[in-house]
């Protein structure tokens, strides 16, 4: 019996709704909006948007690093709890992800706004309000807040799997705790670090809501430009070209990241 044919409908579905759409993106990116003829002008126009691309990449790299620095100790702590506590904490990390990220971002606006909760509190105790919103810092905060769970969960998964006997062995062989960390724990957690970085960086670099609500017109990201090509300016051909470049950039980044690990079927999102 040919069991592999069972995946036939699935493969057909994925070809129809992921591969062919990417072909359509390519087609739109390489054709003129008015005449429908082949053109490279959409791609050439992207040169004007390089500063925005660079800003998106720069802000999301910072956000990803902050997520890693915050997420690693938390994941490490959870991985060393009792199994019942572990499950509880894991659940508490996933819980915010279930609530609309639009509303959670709006809650941050309410907190950081010029007449928001934090500034109201500051003025009520006699301090002057701070410029907390509509700057790069607020956008980074929004990214870190929204995508931190995607960093913690894969890190926790690999840290939990590390055999405690390996750590004991390293200690027996004379490592101090810092050496145990840098020579045993850190190298073994690389797969988790890689999938965590990917899972934070990819949505961060392509976001558009966070930058609209927490940023200013001066901090727009590439996601905002793509969104406006489809929803406001209505130039799907240029929007497709931008999406294509964004996709290629991300595939290059992810490809480079994945060179650090060799197991490609490592499932990063299982519960």
């Amino acid at each position: 019996m040919k069991r592999k044919w069972l995946s036939g409908p699935y493969v057909l579905w994925m070809v129809l709704f992921t591969l062919i759409p990417l072909g359509v993106v390519l087609y739109f990116a390489l054709t003129d909006a008015a005449t429908g003829k082949f053109t490279l002008s959409n791609l050439a126009k992207i040169a004007d948007y390089w500063p925005i691309f660079l800003r998106s990449i720069w802000l999301s790299i910072i956000a990803t690093l902050i997520c890693l620095l915050i997420g690693y100790p938390v994941a490490y702590f959870i991985a060393h709890c009792k199994p019942t506590t572990q499950r509880l904490l894991q659940m508490m990390i996933m819980l915010p992800m279930c609530i609309s990220f639009l509303l959670r971002t709006l809650a941050w606006v309410a907190l950081l706004d010029d007449t928001g909760i934090i500034n109201n509190f500051l003025t009520s105790i006699g301090l002057s309000p701070l410029p907390l919103i509509r700057n790069n810092g607020a956008v980074i905060l929004g990214m870190v807040y929204n995508y931190l769970p995607y960093m913690i969960l894969p890190l926790f998964t690999v840290l939990m799997k590390i055999d405690p006997r390996l750590i004991e062995a390293a200690e027996d062989l004379g490592c101090n705790s810092r050496q145990v960390f840098s020579r045993v724990i850190l190298p073994l957690s690389v797969p988790g670090i890689v999938s965590g970085i990917t899972m934070v960086f990819v949505p961060a670099v392509s976001t558009f809501y966070i930058s609209q609500k927490l940023g200013s017109p001066g901090t727009i990201l590439i996601g905002d430009v793509i969104e406006s090509q489809f929803k406001a300016a209505y130039n799907p051909n240029f929007g497709a070209a931008l999406s294509l470049v964004l996709m290629v950039l991300i595939f290059v980044c992810v490809g480079v990241m994945n060179r650090f690990t060799n197991d490609d079927e490592e499932s990063m999102v299982t519960l």
Binding site: S7, V11, M14, V15, F17, T18, L19, I20, P21, L22, V24, V25, F28, T198, V202, P203, V205, S206, F208, G223, I226, E227, F230, P236, G239, A240, S243, L246, M247, I250, F251, V254, D264, E265, V269
Partner: peptide, 26 residues
Amino acid sequence: VMGLTNIPMTNPDIVTGVSLALLFAF
């Protein structure tokens, strides 16, 4: 097949959304 499965995982949501929207428009 696993590569095909990974496309929507590594693609940012905005690209998936845009590509499907363009397909449907087409």
